[in-house]
């Protein structure tokens, strides 16, 4: 497949502290084609950000380390690159947008300089050209009066505007891959929609692939082609958005779907419909990581780890009971209101 942009296989990221090892990401695999959008969903703490950070090799070390796996970007393993080569990938071929626009821009530099810096790190252009390019980028992300705004400081921008600036910085070098780590979580609902629209629009303009990290399935349905569901550092289900939407198979995915419905009904953000909390990542778990919270768990779930198995074309799941003939039936939930 010549369309393949990124292939991640068995990625493992561990953090060590004086007394223990936190296995934050434990064998995550996925592929991403050009111009495709991949969603990564999961509760907070499931290892989404760590996965994204690992792709740029920005895991703080110590305490963190990429302990295993491969990240083939256009056929080259990013893990084999020298630091210098990796730097020329960051911001140039792969860039990233973070969750909180209020803290991700440097407060003491003008926004124009922060965009220009990204350009000048990777392109041999004069200051003037970079400035013109920065103005263009600001226009592109829909900031009015770009020529004037370029000389302002981040604190003079609203949250939504700052996230637009972050998008401008990330896309300034027309990267092949944009990683967006919950780019709308910190924003108002109306602004969220605007930013998503903007990203979708820009994806078409500059032909970039996107990894969209979110805990909001609504976002996934809206803009993604594929999705992987993460739980406690593992991929538990992956497939095209269509299959997962129509035929979700993993009990954890069901839980996420239910919690989405609950939160839409009660209009309350982050209200989890899945009782319990994620497992302690420092402990060795022989069985399914979800077993403690899974309403369908059987004895085998606590003793043997379910493998990731392809159950239909492009749709994989790791659950002992979803790969056999005796499929679990999703329990009906009754909602009042």
């Amino acid at each position: 497949m010549s369309d393949l942009l990124l292939k991640v296989e068995d990625l493992e990221v561990h953090f060590r502290s004086s007394s223990s090892i936190v296995k934050a990401v434990n064998g995550v695999s996925f592929t991403l084609n050009k111009k495709e959008t991949l969603g990564i969903v999961g509760e907070s703490g499931s290892g989404k950000s760590v996965t994204a950070t690992a792709l740029l090799r920005l895991i703080p070390n110590p305490p963190g380390n990429i302990t295993g796996g491969m990240m083939l970007f256009e056929g080259t393993d990013l893990l084999s690159l020298s630091d210098k080569d990796m730097r020329s990938v960051r911001g140039n071929e792969i860039s990233m947008i973070f969750q909180d626009p209020m803290t991700s821009l440097n407060p003491v530099f003008k926004v124009g300089d922060q965009i220009m810096e990204s350009i000048r790190a990777h392109r041999k252009v004069s200051k003037k050209e970079a400035k013109a390019a920065a103005v263009d980028m600001l226009k592109l992300v829909g900031i009015p009066e770009a020529e004037k705004r370029i000389n302002m400081y981040p604190h003079e921008f609203s949250g939504g505007m700052r996230q637009r600036v972050m998008v401008a910085i990330a896309l300034a070098c027309k990267p092949k891959l944009l990683i967006a780590d919950e780019p709308t979580t910190a924003l108002d609902v109306t602004v969220q929609a605007q930013i998503l629209d903007l990203m979708r629009h820009l994806q078409d303009t500059i032909d970039t692939s996107i990894i969209m990290i979110t805990h909001d399935l609504g976002v996934v349905w809206e803009i993604c082609d594929k999705v992987i569901v993460m739980y406690a550092g593992n991929t538990v289900e992956s497939g095209s958005v269509k299959t997962i939407y129509e035929n979700p198979l993993h009990p954890y995915t069901w839980g996420l779907l239910d919690s989405q419905i609950t939160s839409e009904i009660s209009n309350e953000e982050g209200l989890s419909a899945i009782p319990g909390s994620p497992p302690d990542l420092r402990e060795e778990m022989p069985g399914c990581h979800f077993a403690d919270r899974c309403p369908y768990a059987q004895e085998i779930c606590f003793s043997a780890k379910p493998e990731m198995v392809e159950v239909e074309e492009g749709h994989s799941v790791s659950c002992h009971f979803q790969t056999k003939n005796t499929r679990l039936q999703r329990k009906e939930r009754v909602y009042h209101g």
Binding site: S17, V22, G45, S49, T53, P60, D100, T103, D280, R282
Partner: peptide, 15 residues
């Protein structure tokens, strides 16, 4: 939340 603050929160939880 930044990676570090997530961590700090997580560490607190795990303590």
């Amino acid at each position: 939340m930044s990676l570090q603050s997530t961590v700090a929160a997580a560490e607190k939880k795990m303590a």
